[in-house]
Simulated assay, not measured.
Amino acid sequence: MSGYVDIGAVAEIAEDTPVVVEIDDVPVVVVKTGGEVFAINDTCSHAEVSLSEGEVYNGTLECWLHGSCFDLRTGKPTNPPATRAVPTYRVKIEDGKVLVNVAEPSEYGES
């Protein structure tokens, strides 16, 4: 796997609207909220459905199927039925571009 990958301009990502991209065969949801950009794995740890179809609020991404919310910073579920975290990925903004690194997922998603 590579390091940081350019997924596009930060200005093109709508606030609180999940955007799904694939990086090195990894499905990733990118979310801009509260002036920050986050990247989290697109697969719910409970039902293995796409998180990108869910809603963003209060720093979380809600799974559309059963309602578990995942903290965008840590990937940890904030409510049931999910009990396991999903991986989060490093994000940096350079020259107006969003760069995501899936090579080293967060330790939270490893559980």
Rank of each mutant, 00 (worst) to 15 (best):
P81R: 12
A103L: 01
D6A: 01
A82E: 08
L99P: 01
E107R: 12
S52R: 08
E107F: 06
V56W: 10
M1Y: 06
V26A: 04
G35T: 06
K92A: 03
S111E: 14
P80Q: 11
K32R: 15
V98P: 04
T60G: 09
Y89L: 02
V86M: 00
V10W: 01
V98A: 00
Y4T: 03
A82Y: 10
T43E: 12
Y108H: 14
E94P: 02
K76P: 05
V49K: 10
E48T: 10
D25G: 04
V30Q: 04
S2T: 13
P18I: 07
E55D: 15
V31D: 04
I7K: 06
V5R: 06
V26G: 00
P27S: 10
R84E: 15
D95T: 00
P105R: 02
P77Y: 12
D42E: 12
S2N: 12
S68E: 09
A47M: 14
E62W: 05
C44Q: 10
V20Y: 02
S111T: 11
T43W: 11
G109K: 00
N101E: 08
G67M: 07
I40G: 02
N79F: 09
S52M: 07
A82M: 11
E12K: 13
D6W: 03
V20G: 05
P105I: 03
D16K: 12
E48Q: 12
S2G: 15
L65D: 11
E53P: 00
L72Q: 08
H66Q: 13
D24A: 14
G96A: 01
M1I: 07
K32A: 13
V26Y: 04
R73H: 13
C69S: 15
S2Q: 11
C63W: 03
G8N: 04
D71T: 10
P18F: 05
V5S: 02
E12D: 15
D6K: 01
C63A: 10
C69H: 11
N79K: 10
A47T: 07
V21N: 08
D42R: 07
Y4I: 03
T83I: 14
I13E: 01
E53M: 15
S50E: 14
T33H: 12
G3C: 02
D24P: 02
Y89E: 03
V91R: 04
H66P: 06
Y108W: 09
P80A: 10
A85I: 07
T83R: 13
L51E: 10
K97N: 07
S106K: 02
A14C: 06
W64A: 15
A85C: 12
E36C: 03
D24T: 03
N101G: 01
V102R: 02
V29S: 13
G75D: 11
D71N: 15
V19I: 09
E55Q: 15
T88E: 04
V5W: 02
E107D: 14
P77H: 12
L61Y: 07
I13P: 00
